[in-house]
Simulated assay, not measured.
Amino acid sequence: MSYPQHTGEMASHPEIAEMRERLERTASSGQAIAVEGLILLAGVYIAISPWVVHFTNEPNITVNNLVVGITVGLIGLALTLAPERMFRLAWVVAPLGLWLLLSPWVVTASHSARAGIVWNNCWVGGATIVLGLAAMGLTIGVTRRSGQR
């Protein structure tokens, strides 16, 4: 059974150019630039937080924060460098923030995580959730505005 190939039909659709223009305007707005930059900074802080808060003696949570921080930082960098291609990935930041919030109790071996680990991950996790929701809000705004016409 052969399926018809529909290559190029969406690229020539008249609303695609308008949607790209709206996305470009939103991505270059001051709000979007601030959110993208804050996501990048949050990712960098998450990655270095085990050394800043001095909980490198807990290897599991150290590796967890390093990996999550690098991931959030790369998403922030991608949103900054290529927002028109990456705006649909912005939703991933909020679940990563939720994971940071929960990880001290899930990842630590002793299940009696030090207060510094808990406070650090709760604050930075909450901030990451808020930034992820803000990035999603910008994305939803672009999608809704392009669907109204």
Rank of each mutant, 00 (worst) to 15 (best):
A27T: 02
I33W: 02
R149E: 03
A27W: 02
E36V: 00
V92R: 06
S12E: 15
S112A: 13
L81T: 14
L138G: 02
W119Y: 14
S146H: 04
E24T: 10
G141L: 05
I70H: 07
I117T: 08
R114S: 14
I129R: 01
A42H: 00
P59C: 04
V68P: 00
G132T: 10
P14Q: 12
L77W: 05
Y45M: 11
C122Q: 11
A113N: 03
M136A: 15
V92P: 06
G125K: 02
L138R: 00
T71A: 13
R20C: 03
H6P: 05
M19I: 04
S146L: 04
M1S: 13
L98T: 11
G147Q: 14
R145K: 15
R144V: 15
T7F: 07
P104N: 10
S12P: 12
W51M: 11
V107L: 14
G76A: 05
A109G: 11
L138S: 01
P59D: 08
F55C: 15
L96I: 09
G97C: 02
L98A: 13
P50S: 07
E9F: 14
L96A: 12
A78P: 01
V44C: 02
R25Y: 01
A32I: 00
Q5G: 08
W91S: 13
S12Q: 15
V67S: 09
P104L: 09
H111W: 12
A27M: 07
W51P: 06
S110T: 03
V118Y: 02
S110F: 03
W91V: 10
V72G: 00
I129A: 06
A27P: 08
I39M: 00
N120E: 15
Q31E: 06
R25S: 02
C122K: 06
G73M: 01
A47V: 04
N64L: 10
N64F: 14
L138V: 04
G73R: 03
R88Y: 15
E36Y: 00
A94T: 01
N121G: 07
A134H: 05
V44Y: 04
L138I: 05
V52K: 12
T26S: 10
M19N: 03
A127K: 03
